[in-house]
């Protein structure tokens, strides 16, 4: 009886990160990589994958060791775990995809200070079983990667006229250069946050309306 329940719960923990508690659109965490590396869709995917690796690895370890890490040093212990995973992915990426590593530059190393990751350790992984922690980490990083991809695709389409490096509009398209520059990141992020806030407002209003109807 407990197995299906825990599976269902793990699934719920996974799904919440995708939409209801999306780290970017709802919690507005991880803005630094969000703005810095989303000037192309490929960079966004690479950053999302690197974050997934670090978050899932750290959540797994933190949850596994949650009863062995003294409360007073937990943050430093988490940072050691996170920094280790970040350094591992940094070297692996440099070996496997040097071009992408060059594009992302310092932002791979800066995953260490992504508050999304430390936040998940403190708020979730250190209080839940390994299974739940991994489900939560998978959901959160998938949600983060989805947000990165949204922003990266829009910025690349408008700013370079291409998607994943494939030219979309032909040679006569005059790219909207500001979109791949930092200001474009802020503008686009603002618009996307606005769009998702509007979607949520609408959903809430609809829920309110149906609840009122049910009450009546």
């Amino acid at each position: 009886m407990s197995a299906p329940t825990s599976s269902a719960q793990a699934y719920a923990e996974f799904v919440k990160g995708l939409w209801k508690e999306n780290p970017v659109f709802v919690q507005v965490l991880g803005m630094c990589p969000m703005l810095a590396v989303t000037n192309s869709a490929v960079n966004a995917v690479a950053m999302g994958a690197a974050t997934l690796f670090v978050l899932v690895g750290s959540s797994f370890l933190v949850s596994l060791l949650r009863n062995h890490i003294p409360k007073q040093v937990r943050i430093s212990a988490y940072i050691i775990i996170i920094a280790t995973f970040v350094t591992v992915i940094d070297y692996l990426l440099k070996a496997a995809a040097p071009d992408i590593h060059r594009e992302l530059g310092a932002f791979i190393a800066l995953i260490v200070v992504n508050c999304l990751i430390l936040g998940r350790q403190e708020a979730f992984a250190s209080r839940n079983t390994v299974k739940m922690a991994v489900a939560d980490a998978l959901g959160m990083s998938a949600g983060f990667a989805f947000a990165l991809l949204c922003l990266g695709s829009v910025r690349e389409i408008l700013g370079s006229g291409s998607l994943f490096g494939v030219s979309l509009f032909g040679p006569n398209f005059e790219p909207w250069v500001v979109m791949i520059l930092p200001p474009g990141g802020f503008i686009m992020l603002g618009l996307i946050l606005l769009f998702f806030a509007w979607l949520q407002e609408r959903a809430k209003a609809r829920r309110g309306a149906s609840a009122a109807q049910g009450g009546a």
Partner: peptide, 8 residues
């Protein structure tokens, strides 16, 4: 604590 950090 010291043990944990050292081991980590």
């Amino acid at each position: 604590m010291i043990g944990t950090m050292t081991f980590g």
